[in-house]
Design a protein around this nucleic acid. Sequence first.
DNA 1: TTGAAAGCGCTAACAG
DNA 2: CTGTTAGCGCTTTCAA
Lengths: 337, 337
Amino acid sequence: MESPVNIKKLAQLLNLSIATVSKALRDSHDIGQETKEKVIALAKELNYQPNPHASFLRKHNSKTIAVIIPEIANNYFTLAINGIESVADEKGYHVIIYLSHENVDREVAFSRHLHSGRADGILISVSSTTTDYTHLHDLQKKGLPIVFFDRVCEDFNTVKVTTDDYQSGYLATKHLIDQGCKRIAHLAISTSISIGNNRAKGYLQALQDHGVMTDESFLIECINNTVLDTELIKDLFLHIKPDGIFAAVERYAIICYEICEELGLNIPQDVKIISFSNIQTASLLNPSMSTITQPAFEIGREAATMLLKKLEKKNFELKDETIVIQSKLIPRKSTMM
Amino acid sequence: MESPVNIKKLAQLLNLSIATVSKALRDSHDIGQETKEKVIALAKELNYQPNPHASFLRKHNSKTIAVIIPEIANNYFTLAINGIESVADEKGYHVIIYLSHENVDREVAFSRHLHSGRADGILISVSSTTTDYTHLHDLQKKGLPIVFFDRVCEDFNTVKVTTDDYQSGYLATKHLIDQGCKRIAHLAISTSISIGNNRAKGYLQALQDHGVMTDESFLIECINNTVLDTELIKDLFLHIKPDGIFAAVERYAIICYEICEELGLNIPQDVKIISFSNIQTASLLNPSMSTITQPAFEIGREAATMLLKKLEKKNFELKDETIVIQSKLIPRKSTMM
DNA sequence: TTGAAAGCGCTAACAG
DNA sequence: CTGTTAGCGCTTTCAA
């Protein structure tokens, strides 16, 4: 167990004061060229790493951003993290990940914890059970910048990065109508969160605009519990007998595929399916699945870019705006005529 | 922007000394019961969160563990993170994630950075380009506990958590033989890393034990670049014409599915495919894919459990041992007779 | 049972 | 150009 190499040790070894070493390392203007070089050389040799906790105490930044997401075993969030990480890495920031598991209480607990200075800023995609945002407002009041992505809080005064959920919901539904569907169901995520609500609204509007019959029983609000959701969806198949399904989330579409197999229903002859999804194997499914694919990486990247701009630039403020990055509808066999 | 609530403020408000408040909060034996209660009540009321950076400086622990993995858009690592997070969360630890993108240089840079005290311990699955481990040994010398999972360094003096790669490779190959395959190829990950090497060895041994023909051209070492790997694998199909494929990694199997579609090859009639995989949709692929499914969540959980035991228990040491958690072979249509 | 004071590693204001 | 010094928020002797 080697002794730690800190600024004090460097100073001793070089016969300089601690302050001089500190300034040399930060390339301060008022240190001589040779001194700087000597310091930097020794620092490199000993693999000196400034202690981030100590410098936090002075500068009040930890060079860390917190990412709060509902789950990680999910292609969308995984790609978004890649996007976030790519910009954090460029700017020398570290990424701490918190998983809310779709549970507000956990989200609140994390938020509380973040009052401690562990992170300089927050990227969040709220859980499906979040309806009250005071935990996040408290954080913002404390001066912690927050940027929302994907599942945003629409009336929160900050930058929100999202995709065109309403428009995409509309297009997905329109696509099913164009393919001849008459009984189109929608598997929604909690309509109390932005994306769930917007996707459902797009669905309803498309139906209305094209005179397709519907009633509440065609719109199922799933609960993010595989067992219960499977029951709900099976009920839908048995009682409503839809000929078209628009799933707001990949997992629900997967459940549909499984149920169809179980019930001996043929996709797309008996029922056509389209889903929001970032699954890599959509084209290899049986049958290949039509998707609305979100620019997950770009959304993560954009959200992180905004947050880091706020952290790094003195005069940059997070405006109250929504940045929309378009999704793409990719038709495949699951919605073929 | 509210003023921060720190221990000093609590002390002022309560007319106590900072020291007393500190001790009361840590439930020290030499503080009066009523004093404790008053302190704790106010702390809760004001949502006091101890500053982790300040306490690090004294106690030299940050209640944070670092996880270094090759990539995150991967079902295996995603599940492992869930496992890791589940135990970190129980013990009040935070998880920082570093993505090496299969690049040793990044891994080395992260390791260097971790000399700073940012994390108390490290969980790592090494990149496929890592052959030298001095960056990790340096960390260990400094007193930072390291636990390997999945892609381990076999002769590193610490706990390694992994699955039975050799055995699974053997069984997968045996399964193909049992299904009548005569020309069995293996798509390996870098055989310079443990799991790649062990899976390949199991493959070779199974072939030998059952007298199945082979030569080097049947063992393709992929490079983790989709474009190049696709070329390599397409060459394999065109020139070697295997009738059985054992993929060491999900992504290679996916590429095989795509190539088969392109070349008009029929799975499983023309070629049978089995792969290590944690993909959720394996059973929905066309045809459903036989897999060796690793207990990813449990592996993450076990690795994190060992690391946290080391961090929390005074007398617990990380022994030089390998903990093996069994994988499961799930036969599906892609290897049907 | 409580409080005063030192110090963790670092930065920055100020002196020299 | 370099050094002295105070102090970030907290824990921890040690003294009262």
